[in-house]
Design a protein around this nucleic acid. Structure first.
Lengths: 147, 147
DNA sequence: TGCTAGTTGAAAATCATTTTCAATTATTCC
DNA sequence: GGAATAATTGAAAATGATTTTCAACTAGCA
């Protein structure tokens, strides 16, 4: 289901990137994330564990991981980039809690029928789609009801 | 199908906003857009027609129009906001050409089944979804094939 | 071990967006 | 029509995320 640190490191090497201590640290910090994160958040986290990692390196490493397909961007709103670990391979989407940012991955979006219809009606070549559900998880709902 | 300038102006007044020449100009510039646009693009267009409109005012007016539901944001990539005219009322989504930015609105996304499944499986309260298709329109495809 | 191209990170640059605030003006009330 | 007043405008400055620059450093190869 999830990639391991060494799988990612291997893929990185294979793609011609060098394996530096900073990159290892960023990867390991990413792998602990259970919700979406911003470059700045990840920087804090990684820098806390190994002082001397630069924000720029975090940016660059995240960009690299996204290029390799290990993380992807989500459109969580706000004014900065949000990334998310990608489960291995398969086509999937996200259900995002607007309260805490928790993310649930799901598959089976089944938009092929709609896609076919659009292709027929518009003559577009369709290359992909962006689908995200937004809601509130149980914890956040309870918290709101109480307070 | 589309709102008229005076419909928008009326709604704006009704919501307690003042009708200024600058706002009129921005609204009219928006209404000419057949694809998505950025605040900066709209500023250029509006300022060309009536010099002296400030970029800040464009930002503020677009925010207002979005709040009133006449335009909405799209996630077209890039590093700045993209807006789009919203067809009257109904729930709809966008098919966006990655080449030229042309936008086709469509309805009938039918995600209620999927939404129900997610609600059941995750116990989230689902408040909405974001769905966009990306592709290439006929013109852009031809242009690419030729050159 | 030494070479070299890839990598790092501090600082500066960039760029979209937001805030500030004094001057202006649309609307209301007489 | 003419104040009064609160909303609006826009230039300039502030903010904040992201990117670029470049000299120093280093991973990985020979």
């Amino acid at each position: 289901m999830d990639y391991t640190q060494s799988e990612i490191e291997r893929a990185l090497r294979k793609a011609g990137y060098r394996l530096t201590p900073q990159r290892r640290e960023v990867i390991s910090a990413v792998m602990e994330c259970r919700r979406h994160f911003t470059p700045a958040e990840l920087y804090e986290k990684a820098a806390r564990r190994r002082s001397g990692i630069g924000l720029v390196t975090v940016y660059r490493t995240l960009e690299m991981l996204a290029r390799l397909g290990f993380i992807c961007e989500v459109h969580a709103g706000g004014n900065c980039r949000h990334y998310l670990i990608r489960p291995t391979g398969e086509h999937h989407h996200h259900l995002i809690c607007s309260g805490c940012g928790r993310v649930v991955n799901f598959t089976g979006c089944d938009l092929t029928g709609l896609e076919r219809r659009l292709r027929r009606e518009t003559s577009f070549t369709i290359s992909g789609h962006l689908l995200e559900f937004v809601g509130q998880c149980v914890d956040c709902r309870r918290r709101e009801e109480k307070g």
